[in-house]
Amino acid sequence: MLQRTIPIAILCLSGVIMIVAYFVSFAVSWSETVNVWFNILSAVAFVLGAGNLLAVNLEKISSRRPGWAYAAITLVSFFFMLVVGLLKLGAVPDPKNPLIHFAGDYETSASPYGWMYEYVFSPLTSTMFGLLAFYVASAAFRAFRAKNVESILLLGTAFIILIAQTAAGMFLTGWIPQDSVFAVLRFDSLKVGITEHIQTAGMRAITIGIALGVAATSLRLILGIDKSYLSKN
């Protein structure tokens, strides 16, 4: 019973405080307190996550499940970064306090932590993000087919934006004078027209719908009507 009542009470109280604080000046400090508590909890959640990561990967290694070697690499990397970062191993001494080890800079690439960040972590995440270019190309190849009027419009818009987003747009239509009646046919003008009018209008419509959805869902949570995020036991 309390497992459900207390969280709902906390949610309801926090929600009402945040709303009131937006309109009443003296309640601002209450909302600050709520924010500070939220920040503390989100910091603690990192520890909770680390515990779960350990449990899952140790179980994988001990039971020799398929891919257990990846779990081992994960744990070794995790502990390496944790120890090097927490103990500031190899940190560059601070010129003002050269004798105080913990005053040293551990984020520079001259230290092991900074080096790992700069030359291992950074390239790896950039690679993952870079994969998007390849997936966008294969998705575009498959999805942009002129099957009906709507898809032809989509195709035409994609064509204009793809051209206008590069120097090719100016190369092809840059010769049309800005002040002529045909200036609207310039790729840069077409792009501005599409993004600032058509796309923004569509996006506003979707955003209004989403905002109303968020408001309704938030209200369901604050009023304790939607309890799906809580255990039923």
Binding site: A137, A140, F141, A146, L155, F159, L162, I163, T166, A168
Partner: peptide, 12 residues
């Protein structure tokens, strides 16, 4: 971007 336009044309 030119490649993507080419791919879209090819797909169609």
């Amino acid at each position: 971007h030119l490649l993507m336009i080419g791919l879209i044309v090819l797909g169609n």
